[in-house]
């Protein structure tokens, strides 16, 4: 379990990183926190010729709140998100979700940008970005692009990012008035990749959802922004309404089988999450026909 030989450069600026990426294209890999890349290299699942280490690019690190927007640099580590008062105040869904990302040692090194660019469909942060309606900012030789999170994730380990582009930062709208969130995932052990998870952001007025973004993860090839959520908006939620949404959710999901769970089990767990999530968001425990939250 030793990585094959590779060339290595520590980028001195974003511009320098982009030049290196242009020179090496898909023969290069960007190293940020290294929590997915290094194990894959050591297992020789991938053997990139060239490593572009962006770890020293301080300009990519940090959390800023201005004009109703939370801007998070790509190199911001999970632990910094977890402990940030700004994130807790303006994007509390993220604070809650980060606690489920692996273990402290990994959170101390792993970065937000790394997680998003890696795009593991079972990981928490891509789903949170979609739930929070984030904008993902990428830069290439031609300049900067802004991509809606929902369009950024394309498939298993697949994103809108080209081999010559760098993920720079994400922007989130600050949580508004009457905003509520819910996060839960089912994993065999705390810190494992989820078997099924839900990141949800909602606006609730007088016990009614006026906006609801339910993003399921680990049940498809990318975070799934459930269309079924629309059935729960601007309507009094009753068990039959919830049951109808649950059936609709079941229709739109196409989960996979693996060692931890069959597709049927994932579908079932997603429905449990829907019921528990809606009940928790509305603070109506009785709604949860599917069981205890």
């Amino acid at each position: 379990m030793k990585a094959a030989a590779f060339a290595y450069a520590r980028a001195t600026s974003v511009g320098n990183a982009l030049e290196l990426l242009k020179a090496y294209g898909d023969r290069a890999k960007v190293l940020s926190g290294g929590q997915s890349l290094m194990p894959a290299m050591n297992l020789r699942l991938i053997s990139p010729e060239f490593i572009v280490d962006i770890g020293e690019l301080a300009e990519l690190r940090g959390i800023m709140v201005t004009d109703g927007v939370v801007r998070i640099g790509a190199l911001t580590r999970h632990v910094d998100l977890l402990t940030s008062p700004d994130i807790a105040a303006h994007a509390p869904l993220l604070t809650e979700a980060i606690a489920h990302v692996a273990h402290p040692a990994i959170r101390n090194r792993g970065t937000l940008g790394g997680s998003l660019a890696h795009a593991d469909p079972a990981s928490e942060l891509p789903a949170c970005m979609v739930a929070l309606n984030a904008t993902i900012i990428v830069r290439g030789q031609a300049g900067e692009r802004r991509v809606a999170a929902v369009d950024f994730f394309k498939g298993i380990y697949e994103t809108d990012l080209s081999a010559e582009e760098l993920l720079i930062s994400v922007e989130l709208p600050v949580a508004g008035k009457n905003s509520v969130h819910y996060f839960h995932e089912f994993a065999r052990r705390h810190g494992d990749y989820a078997i099924a998870g839900l990141a949800a952001q909602a606006t609730v007025e007088k016990d009614v959802f006026t906006d609801l973004r339910l993003v399921f993860f680990a049940v498809g090839d990318r975070p799934v922004l459930a269309r079924a959520a629309t059935r729960l908006v601007n309507i009094t939620i009753t068990p039959p309404v919830l049951a109808a949404a649950s059936s609709a959710l079941s229709e739109e999901l196409d989960p996979h089988d693996d060692q931890q769970a069959s597709a049927a089990m994932r579908r079932h767990l997603a429905k449990v999450l829907l019921a528990r999530g809606a009940s928790a968001l509305l603070n109506q425990p009785d709604l949860n026909a599917g069981g205890r939250a």
């Binding site: 297992l43 065999r188 052990r189 705390h190 810190g191 494992d192 990749y193 060692q259």
Partner: peptide
Amino acid sequence: CVYDERGQLTNANMADYLVPMSGE
């Protein structure tokens, strides 16, 4: 240890083979 029908061990790593952890 999960073997498939061809005798391949399919979870020979610490992510897929679940050892008990303190959290549980």
